[in-house]
């Protein structure tokens, strides 16, 4: 593909592919990448990584969030369609696949999570299938959808990042949801006091109250890091795996016609990574929530 785009160096090619399509507000008197100066603040698409950065926090990655929501709706629609067609007869085709997923998730949840919760199993199912779908976008050859989007929009330099899980915003968005649930379950099961005690009275513990008071900051730092590490590791693991794989797909895509066998081999290998990462995300979510749920 690099050859076709002519003037693009391989570095630029990769950077272009890794840049999100960001929609946000640029301030007044901002000099855009093409030298144009904005007279007043404007909501627009970023035309360079620097512009995307300058839009600050209140900007949206239209491409990854769009694909993520689209795939989420796709998942809900397909599964709801199977669920709605309540048939006790022999399931066929896609219904088999759906039930396979449900059975797998149900088994894992009941193995790990011993409390009774109506939320955990549907949560795990949503995570698993949704993350698989998002990871699957990585299998689509890296230039197809961006070029399609560029053709449709008429903008040959449109940024279009297709794989939602290669955007840390997406993976952190998921893990923040899980993090909120961890805190919710901890407080629900142990109370606010119990939750605070869990953060401050472990792992260093003393019968002497003055010694204990000295221990509290250390405990808070250790347990706090442990708590924060959960969503961070969850998000970064998924992001890192998919980002690296996407990068390798990009490198392979620059090989010209030689890319075909390499792309095939890497895609086959990547097919293993896709469900594995989704599975790991789901399992760790269940484990974290069951840890939050268990009282010591």
């Amino acid at each position: 593909m690099a050859a076709e785009e002519g003037t693009l160096t391989s570095n630029e090619y990769i950077q272009h592919h890794l840049q999100n399509m960001v929609f946000g507000k640029l301030p007044a008197d901002y000099e855009r990448v093409d030298g144009q100066v904005l007279e007043q603040a404007a909501w627009t698409l970023a035309h360079s990584p620097q512009e995307a950065k300058d839009m600050g926090f209140w900007a949206v990655n239209v491409d990854t969030l769009g694909w993520s929501v689209f795939l989420g709706i796709f998942f809900c629609f397909m599964f709801h369609r199977v669920a709605k067609r309540a048939s006790e007869g022999a399931p066929s085709g896609f219904a088999n696949f759906v039930e396979l997923m449900v059975e797998m998730v149900d088994k894992n949840v009941s193995d790990i999570f011993h409390g009774k919760s109506l939320l955990i199993a549907p949560l795990a199912l949503t995570i698993f299938v949704w993350v698989i779908l998002m990871n699957m976008m990585d299998i689509v050859p890296v230039d197809w959808l961006p070029i399609l989007a560029q053709t449709l929009s008429g903008d040959p330099h449109l940024y279009f990042k297709v794989v939602p899980t290669t955007d840390p915003n997406i993976t952190f968005g998921l893990s923040i949801g899980v993090f909120i649930l961890i805190i919710f379950y901890s407080i629900k099961m142990k109370g606010v006091g119990g939750f605070i005690a869990e953060l401050t009275l472990h792992p260093f513990n003393s019968k002497n109250i003055f010694v204990q008071i000295i221990f509290i900051p250390f405990n808070l730092v250790l347990e706090g890091i442990g708590l924060i590490a959960k969503p961070v590791s969850l998000a970064l693991r998924l992001f890192g795996n998919l980002y690296a794989a996407e990068l390798i797909f990009l490198l392979i895509a620059m090989l010209g016609y030689y890319q075909l066998p390499f792309h095939f081999v890497w895609a086959v290998f990547h097919i293993l990574v896709i469900p594995l990462q989704a599975y790991v995300f789901m399992m760790l979510t269940i484990v974290y929530l069951s840890m939050a749920h268990d009282t010591h």
């Binding site: 999100n20 960001v22 946000g24 839009m55 600050g56 926090f57 209140w58 900007a59 949206v60 990655n61 990854t64 969030l65 993520s68 929501v69 989420g72 998942f75 809900c76 599964f79 709801h80 939320l119 549907p122 949560l123 199912l125 949503t126 949704w130 955007d167 840390p168 915003n169 997406i170 952190f172 968005g173 998921l174 923040i176 949801g177």
Partner: peptide
């Protein structure tokens, strides 16, 4: 990091609720 984070978290909550 930008508001995509919030959008994604919101979408996550909605999809989990739907499921």
């Amino acid at each position: 990091f930008n508001a995509t984070l919030i959008g994604q978290t919101f979408a996550f909550v909605v999809f989990v609720w739907f499921t």
